[in-house]
Design a protein around this nucleic acid. Structure first.
Lengths: 357, 357
DNA sequence: TTGTAAGCGTTATCAG
DNA sequence: CTGATAACGCTTACAA
């Protein structure tokens, strides 16, 4: 277990540690003969410089910290997959800390990352920007993801939850629905609030009344969607359309509607949000608001890299990730965005396809 | 950007840096009055010790390195989700490096982690154990995941790919199928080879001939499954059952069979491997070999923690993660393991349900 | 109870 | 071209 150090290499090669360092980093001039000898010894000893020691003096860790909330399904994988290649392409690794849903946990995670990262990506839809401010470090650039922090002093990227929800509900209204219900997301969740806001805005624009009886609380889970739809199905008359704050709830809702004897989309139109892979495969295929999660991750890393590039701190960029309506059978109108689940895969983005190691 | 150090705290509190350290770590005796003052100053300055500096002396980083191959779909998320809570529960963070499919990349990733991690989890189904050996560090414990390394000097966990494939193919044979085709996984992939081995073993056990024409190559993607099934459908006579090395390929295969005018399961039974969430929702629901990926991740972390606990290195543990047959409609026999996609969610593991932030 | 000082393994700055 | 040597920020004997 006694790990070998630059000193061992230097001794064995008959040079000073400074020379070894120069050889390994390609810094400073070294005689060709010396270089060869050092390189050979380093290889023999299988030597790799100690990261912590190195970054103590260089003040670089070549690592980005990523702090995420409880994230399930493809969302989690996709955001990381969006980050990782770009990060590595720029020479950075990812230090991950997930499942943080409250301020205390985030603060703890951020503290643990002090001196271990060159930049931070924090996604925290459940903790207000105000609460975050006090625990965000000042010595390292930060990019905020889906945080309630627009206008704040940090660069931020937000999914256009409002616009996506609004567009979907307007689409439902355009199909002639007048009693459009909504199954909301977790209480206190920023995305959930924005999607709700979009729903209400669309109703207003379409000249439809906002009926509190048609807004039921959910929790982003399939089960929650089931329960919510159960309750809505008991209404008299029941809604003719159901907008769910995410696809998992929509999947659960479709089960509940069926169990209540209502047909989708004949009796009730259903739409979700996120466009998870299952949306395409479920029967009837689920209309949804597509979010390019991969790009969200890549954007965040890109922003961080850019920030680290400049010396003088620029005013924080606040970016909005657009969403896209994907209309499938579940809402009754098979529009231009239709994608049958079983078309020839050559026409499909096979992005979600592979699943085994 | 000038980050504050223990020295700043010491100066401001009118004590030595040693005292500050003692207060912050709860090590050594400190007068109550001093402790209070130091704590207050530390809080005022929002001071957090520098990780790299600290681990240089303590020789602990409180971090596990996780090196993964190109992993798509839920597999990736689930394995990380299995690791993260247990790791954090034991006081460790996760340093992630994914998308490594060849020796050179893995070696590079491992080098970058030197001095940054206390232990390593390496999953590398595409690189042979022999090739790995030379680049695995000697100064930090390692756990191998799904590597061709059984019997090697490192503790390892492997999914029971052989047993799962064998069981599924035996199930198909038990249903009376005599021409059972297989769509294989990526060339050179260890999991793929093991699943193929299970297929062949089952054929032999069932007294069925191994017909090379019934074994077609795949690549773990939906598109690859489509192409393979297209070819198989052209056979005369076509196979009556199709075992795919993973679910994504099975999904693609089902499309191709349908396009070729064959009904599933009436004309051809189809089965997959992994039991990804889509398997339950697709129509007909896909029979599959369930892999508890979450547990795989947790096991790996658990093993690492255990190794770090003991002083004397124990002989390496080699564990096998069992799989479980999940029989659904796609293979024609709805056995005891049947789960209709739209049952009441209370009866279901809603594990994969939530998907939004 | 507290302070001084010696590292931890590197890189960087000097002289030689 | 090369070698001492001083940092980097922290923990931890050892003294006081």
């Amino acid at each position: 277990m006694a790990s070998i150090t630059i000193r061992d290499v230097a001794a064995r090669a008959g040079v000073s540690i400074a020379t070894v360092s120069r050889v390994l980093n390609g810094s400073g001039p070294v005689r060709e003969e010396t270089r060869a000898r050092v390189e050979q010894v380093a290889a023999e000893l299988n030597f790799t410089p100690h990261g912590a020691a190195r970054s103590l003096i260089t003040r670089r860790t070549d690592t980005f910290g990523v702090v995420l909330p409880d994230l399930f399904g493809e969302f989690f994988s996709e955001v990381i997959r969006g980050m990782d290649p770009l990060a590595r392409g720029n020479g950075y690794h990812l230090l991950l800390s997930s499942s943080h849903d409250n301020r205390r946990e985030i603060e703890f995670a951020l503290q643990a990352m002090r001196g271990r990262v060159d930049g931070l990506i924090v996604m925290s839809p459940n903790v207000s920007a105000r609460a975050l401010e006090s625990c965000l470090p000042g010595d390292v650039p930060v990019v905020l993801l889906n945080c309630e922090a627009a206008g704040g002093p940090w660069p931020a990227i937000n999914v256009d939850n409002f616009g996506g929800a609004r567009a979907m509900v307007l689409h439902l209204a355009g199909l002639g629905h007048r009693r459009i219900a909504m199954v909301g997301g977790s209480a206190g969740n920023f995305d959930a609030r924005e999607r709700q806001r979009g729903y209400l805005a669309a109703l207003a624009e379409a000249g439809l009344p906002a009926d509190p009886a048609l807004e039921v609380a959910g929790d982003f889970t399939e089960r929650g969607g089931y329960r919510a739809a159960e309750a809505l199905a008991r209404l008299d008359p029941p809604p003719t359309a159901l907008f769910c704050a995410n696809d998992s709830m929509a999947v659960g809702a479709m089960s509940a509607l069926r169990a209540a004897g209502l047909r989708v989309p004949a009796d009730v139109a259903v739409a979700g949000f996120d466009d998870i892979p299952i949306a395409r495969y479920i029967d009837p295929a689920l209309s949804s608001v597509h979010v390019d999660v991969h790009r969200l991750g890549a954007l965040a890393v890109g922003m961080l890299c850019e920030t680290l590039g400049k010396e003088t701190p620029h005013p924080p960029v606040h970016e909005m990730l657009p969403t896209r309506l994907v209309i499938r059978r579940s809402c009754g109108a098979t529009g231009p965005g239709d994608e049958p689940a079983h078309r020839h895969p050559d026409e499909s983005g096979a992005g979600h396809a592979r699943s085994s190691p």
